[in-house]
Structures are given as C-alpha cells and as structure tokens.
Amino acid sequence: MEDLESILKQHPFLEDLQPEQVKLIVGCAKNLRFKPGEFLAREGQKEACLSLIRRGTVAIETHAPNGETMCIETLMPGDVLGLSWITPATAHFDCRARETVIAFSLDHGCLVGKMKEDPAFGYAITSRLLDNTYQRLSRLRLQKLDVYR
C-alpha cells in the first residue's frame, strides 16, 4: 500500500517539492472523506485548513435572499480549497461536496509553524498559494465580464 508521503507528493499542488519538504507536510496532513452534500467549509466560519482535493467535485456556492443557491465554480481533483487559509480568514463561500470527496486536509497551525521555521519551505508553499490565487483571480475576472451575454 502506498504511504501518505508518496500519495501526497502526487498532488499537483505539491509537485516538485523537495522530498524533505514533503516530509514536513506529512506531519500536518490528514486524509479526509466527505459524503455527497457534506460541507468542506461554510461561509463565515474560520478556515482552519487547506484542502488538497484528490477525488470528487466540490461546488463553491452562495445563496440569495430568496433561498436560491448559486454555484460559482466547481473544484476538481488537483485543485486546492481554502486559499485564504494562510491569514487565517473566514470562508467567503460554502464549499459542498457534490459527490464523495477525498482530500488531504493540511492543518493551519501546524503548517504555518513549519513555514516560519523553514523560510525555503515557507516560500515554496506561499508561491504555490499565490499561483493558485492568481489563476483563480484570472478565471473570476473572465467570469465577471459575462462575455456570453
């Protein structure tokens, strides 16, 4: 059976990390399973972990006063959830498992502690978070343009 370390390093977010850096993450990671309909994060609640999605689809949702729920984006295996986690902040949206979701959950306190202790490791994680944030931002900008109108 594959151990946590070898599965972790296959996730695109951790691609090209040094083996010793992956080891640092292992100590902060839990493998979690969410049932369909279960929430990985709720709007207004503290985001205490960064989730690396391994399987399943997560819908990022919000709701209007009339009760209508809108999906803004779906996240897929290989994506990360909880980009604002480094601050740490509260979630801006509900994140719901649309089918069974399997994700690595990286604990905030544990990982940030290691990032502070080891600046090279901190840089490697921060630059990945920035890259993901930038990609998410570009997609949202295009979405905001509402080009198909």
């Binding site: 949702e61 729920t69 809108m70 999906c71 779906t74 649309r98």
Partner: peptide, 14 residues
C-alpha cells in the same frame, strides 16, 4: 457554464 444553480451536475467556471 459560468454559473448555475444546484440542479446542474456539470462543471462550473470559465
């Protein structure tokens, strides 16, 4: 699709 309700099971995004 750029946006959807909860009755769409396909991808949402650009």
């Amino acid at each position: 699709v750029d946006r959807s309700g909860t009755d769409w099971y396909g991808r949402v995004g650009v």
